[in-house]
Simulated assay, not measured.
Amino acid sequence: MTQHPDHDVELYRDDGVYRVFVDLPGFDPEEIDVAWVHHRLTVSARRTGGPGSSRVFDHEVNVPRAVDTEAITATYREGVLDVELPVDPGESPPGRRIEIEK
């Protein structure tokens, strides 16, 4: 069963893997382009119908941790794109917690 997001795009963290769900009903897989560019997931979809009829979707998702770019996978079922972005185990989390002096 495919998870249908409540919004057009949703990001979840699940045991060392970020999952991005994108609701793209009515598109064919060939009309969807998924890329990892400058630490962002980009999703574009374009469908041209008859004269004056077209659908365009463009969205970027920032991911808060470095990911293993070689292990990224994507599936498209029942109108939902599901992209898995495994966290890079060698990368430390960005930033640090700062203690407040009393």
Results as ranks from 00 to 15, higher is better:
residue 66 A to V: 12
residue 48 T to V: 15
residue 57 F to S: 01
residue 77 R to Q: 13
residue 83 V to D: 05
residue 89 P to A: 00
residue 13 R to L: 11
residue 60 E to A: 08
residue 33 D to A: 14
residue 1 M to F: 09
residue 24 L to D: 02
residue 12 Y to L: 02
residue 100 I to R: 15
residue 45 A to E: 11
residue 92 S to H: 14
residue 13 R to S: 14
residue 4 H to Y: 05
residue 24 L to E: 11
residue 37 V to K: 15
residue 43 V to N: 01
residue 54 S to E: 02
residue 5 P to G: 01
residue 52 G to V: 05
residue 3 Q to N: 12
residue 26 G to R: 10
residue 97 R to F: 15
residue 37 V to W: 04
residue 60 E to Q: 11
residue 63 V to E: 10
residue 36 W to I: 00
residue 31 E to D: 15
residue 20 V to H: 02
residue 48 T to I: 07
residue 66 A to K: 09
residue 87 V to N: 02
residue 94 P to Y: 08
residue 74 A to G: 01
residue 91 E to Y: 10
residue 52 G to S: 02
residue 67 V to M: 10
residue 28 D to Y: 03
residue 91 E to F: 04
residue 24 L to T: 05
residue 8 D to I: 10
residue 64 P to Y: 06
residue 20 V to W: 02
residue 47 R to N: 11
residue 85 L to I: 00
residue 39 H to Y: 13
residue 53 S to P: 03
residue 95 G to W: 11
residue 67 V to C: 07
residue 3 Q to M: 12
residue 16 G to C: 01
residue 6 D to M: 04
residue 50 G to T: 08
residue 60 E to W: 14
residue 64 P to W: 08
residue 76 Y to V: 11
residue 60 E to N: 06
residue 10 E to R: 09
residue 25 P to E: 09
residue 72 I to H: 03
residue 64 P to N: 10
residue 46 R to T: 06
residue 28 D to M: 14
residue 21 F to W: 01
residue 77 R to V: 15
residue 18 Y to N: 02
residue 58 D to H: 14
residue 45 A to R: 09
residue 50 G to V: 14
residue 10 E to V: 05
residue 10 E to T: 01
residue 73 T to V: 12
residue 82 D to A: 07
residue 35 A to Q: 15
residue 1 M to P: 07
residue 62 N to E: 14
residue 101 E to H: 08
residue 89 P to K: 00
residue 45 A to H: 11
residue 43 V to T: 10
residue 64 P to T: 08
residue 23 D to V: 05
residue 3 Q to V: 07
residue 10 E to W: 00
residue 92 S to D: 13
residue 46 R to Q: 04
residue 21 F to N: 01
residue 73 T to G: 02
residue 44 S to C: 07
residue 39 H to D: 15
residue 49 G to R: 04
residue 7 H to F: 13
residue 83 V to Q: 07
residue 70 E to G: 01
residue 93 P to W: 12
residue 97 R to V: 03
residue 102 K to P: 13
residue 82 D to L: 10
residue 66 A to L: 12
